[in-house]
Design a protein around this nucleic acid. Structure first.
Lengths: 304, 304
DNA sequence: GTTTTTCGTTGCACTAAAAACAACAATAAA
DNA sequence: TTTATTGTTGTTTTTAGTGCAACGAAAAAC
């Protein structure tokens, strides 16, 4: 047993409202026979007589009265459902799932996401973070609408909306001995400095590993981690340096906790931020709108 | 905006339950194209995408999730509505409107109605009382399903289900001086006794008036009233006698508060109880059932 | 009391909408 | 690369809803 035919219920409602089947038929622009038949069909389906027909029009039976009350209630609920829909479409409500590399979190929430959330206060977010590999998996399996990853590997199932070069910088505590190093930095110098680097599979970690191979060098890795927070603390405590794109530490640079130095070695500039979605997926309106905010934000890095 | 097409919502519900449109189509015994098209039509009507279609079946969007919840809720309400209907049909619930002459009340509620109510505990009753004229009006205008009146006037719009002769008796207090009168009673004697009689328009009152005219007599009416309760009190207090059918005072006779004497004058036997309904009206099941109880009860008077 | 009007209903022909059938493009699995 | 499965789209067929006309019943008008 599913719902009731809206035509039939509409005919019934109007007929009892007007009082006669003919009157209802005229208002609806149909024949009286149509209204009569549809009401009869409804009665047959429900197994109950709904109206008393006779002498001067029609009137509800007790069962019909119950049905009419049910229809009024249902109609109200349907209207509120539709207002929910329009709220979703106008981005007044909705949920967006994001899967991002850890490095994106600080920059993301404090800029693009903050702006978007201010414009659309009703939207809620699911933000998970993980390695580049995990981000791509989340996007491929629809666990996330949008992914932000560093050096996403090309994949047929993944569509990259925007990619922005994000060169790796050398991050140093302001009062560190290494802060005095003059740009341009030689790659040989870098290997001498104690540093913390990300594991492979983290995008950035993969890139560093590639650089080691290409130049046949070995970084002086004091710490290997999969946590960017660890890297930041490592530098702030002046235990050494690390390599991260500048956008990851915009806040720390502003707060003068960390300084960033450019590295002229071209391979350090190969890294890219990728804004990705699943190939062929039709995103919810809210998610689509957010991607444009993210693209705009990312493009500000291009100009630098 | 009326309700939603039950076909469309059913297709949608099953499709998201099974996970694929083809699976749902197979279960329903229809073609996949049918399911696909109907869901699309539903989306168009609601102005929202409801499912994400793609690679490995279909999945609900946020809007679709809202709709699915709405449908589950609505379905539950529809089921409870149907159980209400069946309760109505099985006389487990319902309302019956009765319009009766005042004289019927005592006998009615203590016998037939009490029995019916015991058999069908869920039924509620609207009981109004009035003159024969008022009862007939209530029945004609559908204010009452069933009418009980004394000497209902023949009418094309009224259908009499049962009529039972209810001769007028002379009612006397047991210890009254008039209690010694011997049957058969002469009509001349009756005019000497102080009595209380009903107004015309009350059926019984009309009959008494007719008798006065036919025999060219005049009752010694100390009290004229439209209240049967007044008549009873008048007799109980031994202020005089009155004329009522026996069924009106069955209780008082059992309690030895009043005694009834037969009157041989044939006109006193003309009165009838009428069980009436409106001509052509289709009564609710509960009311139909009650009429048979009432008919059975009334037939017990025939045998006397 | 009779006629007239208005009510809901029913039979039949017709039209518009829903369903079946078949072929298609896209995607995941082998 | 091939194969199988998914949802979709033309096209034809079938179904169900609709309009038209006439009917019987009943209230209203005369």
């Amino acid at each position: 047993m599913s719902g009731l035919d809206p035509n039939q219920t509409q005919y019934l409602s109007l007929a009892i409202k007007v009082g006669t089947i003919r009157g209802a038929a005229e208002l609806l622009g149909v024949e009286p026979s149509t209204v009569s038949r549809q009401i009869s069909a409804l009665e047959k389906q429900l197994g109950t007589t709904l109206i008393e027909r006779g002498r001067k029009g029609v009137r509800l039976t007790e069962a019909g009265d119950l049905l009419a009350a049910y229809l009024r209630r249902q109609n109200g609920e349907l209207e509120s459902l539709q207002s929910e829909f329009s709220a979703l479409q106008q981005l007044q409500r909705g949920t967006i799932s994001l899967s991002v590399g850890e490095g994106f979190i600080g920059d993301l929430v404090s800029t693009a996401l903050a702006l978007f959330s201010k414009e659309h206060p009703g939207i809620t977010y699911n933000i998970t973070y993980g390695s580049t590999k995990q981000v791509m998996h989340d996007v491929k399996t629809d666990r996330a609408h949008i992914g932000l990853a560093y050096d996403a590997i090309p994949d047929k199932q993944i569509k990259t909306l925007t990619q922005v070069k994000q060169p790796l910088r050398l991050l140093i505590a302001p009062h560190s001995q290494y802060a005095k190093l003059q740009e341009p930095l030689d790659i040989k110098e870098l290997t001498k400095i104690p540093c913390a680097i990300l594991n492979r599979g983290m995008g950035i970690g993969t890139l560093l590993n590639r650089i080691e191979g290409l130049h046949n060098i070995q970084f002086n890795a004091v710490v290997k981690t999969n946590s960017i927070a660890v890297l930041k603390n490592f530098v702030r405590e002046d235990m050494g340096v690390t390599f991260l794109p500048e956008f990851v530490v915009v806040r720390e640079i502003l707060d003068k906790q960390i300084i960033a130095k450019k590295i002229t070695v071209p391979e350090f500039s190969l890294g890219e931020s990728h804004l990705i979605v699943r190939q062929g997926r039709r995103l919810p309106d809210a998610a689509i709108s957010l991607t444009s905010y993210l693209q705009q934000h990312m493009s500000t890095y291009k100009k630098k």
